[in-house]
Nucleic acid binder design. Structure first.
Length: 291
DNA sequence: CTTACGGCCTGGGTGC
DNA sequence: TGCACCCAGGCCGTAA
């Protein structure tokens, strides 16, 4: 599931492999996940790839302006849950569910594969980018401790929900939210406003440590994720909470539990990450309501 | 405005 | 062998 570390890994790989290449042809399969397929077919052939960057979980493939005009385009890519993007030689077997082929001037083709098609492709003018992704929150690896605190200050929502909210911080998903909370020893259902400064500091630190470690291991591969070299990541071997229901906590030996928080499966250690005191209206797993 | 929740998209995996 | 069902992440609409 591509989250910040996976998208960062893909962005770095693409930067190395396809920056400077020219797209010579576009071939599309299913297009229901593409904003304006005709725009891709019209504008991309002949365009040279300038840079590849990450913005939250989005990949931004910026194109050099074509013939004189200064209309700069950017190919905006979201990998969703199962999106894969890798340059391949044309004789490399085409994976099932490959829906976009971008032939490059070095003979390879950049292929977009997405089993679920929860991903998105869109070719947007540079000027329209701000409206599409400008509303995203701070990058968790760049945000200062002070801004991190102010973004959570006074928020009554559960910390897990806020970590998943891309308008608060951009780039975290279910895996890294759970891993960060485990490391910070905070229960996912804690209310952000009730976190003590020391706990916020722990969480801030944990998020940075977890994301940086995950980038070093080139992301987590659970089912589908591969990088721009077609290789899986290895951070799943370091998971301490995510997907470990019923297994022992690496810190204390207690059994890791799973509950639904903020509508998502949340894995945590009930001993290291003590539940918040029950209060009126706090929703518990199974939908029971306490008054 | 903030928060919570349900539904939708799709198809692989699972269990009967 | 077949089939119903669950689940995943992001997003949107709705309601309080």
């Amino acid at each position: 599931m591509p989250e910040l570390p996976e998208v960062e890994t893909v962005a770095r790989g693409l930067r190395e492999q396809i920056a400077g290449r020219r797209i010579v042809a576009v071939r599309l399969g299913k297009t229901d996940f593409i904003d304006d397929p005709a725009a891709l077919e019209r504008e991309l052939p002949g365009a040279r790839i300038a840079t590849v960057t990450r913005h939250g979980k989005f990949l931004l493939v910026r194109l050099e302006p074509r013939h004189g005009d200064d209309s700069r385009f950017c190919l905006l890519i979201h990998l969703g849950m199962t999106g894969q993007l890798a340059p391949r030689h044309p004789d490399f077997p085409v994976a099932a569910h490959t829906h976009a082929f971008f032939a490059l001037d070095d003979g390879r083709e950049l292929r977009y594969t997405d089993v679920r098609r929860f991903g998105r492709l869109a070719l947007v003018p540079e000027a329209a980018l701000e409206e599409l992704i400008g509303g995203l929150g701070a990058d968790p690896l760049e945000v200062t401790r002070a801004e991190f605190g102010s973004r959570l200050a006074g928020r009554r929502a559960m910390i897990k929900a806020l970590l998943l909210d891309q308008r608060v911080l951009r780039g975290m998903g279910n895996i890294y939210a759970d891993e960060s909370l485990w490391r910070a020893r905070l229960h996912p259902a804690r209310h952000a406003a009730r976190l003590k400064p020391q706990e916020l500091a722990r969480l801030y630190r944990a998020i940075r440590d977890v994301l940086n470690a995950a980038i070093r291991l080139r992301g987590s591969s659970i089912a589908n994720y591969i990088d721009a070299e077609g290789q899986p990541g290895r951070y799943q071997l370091r998971h301490r909470a995510y997907g470990r229901e019923g297994k022992r906590c690496f810190r204390c030996g207690q059994t890791i539990r799973r509950m639904i928080v903020a509508g998502r499966s949340s894995y945590f250690c009930p001993r290291c990450q003590p539940a918040p005191r029950r209060r009126r209206g706090v929703k518990l797993a199974g939908g029971a309501r306490f008054r």
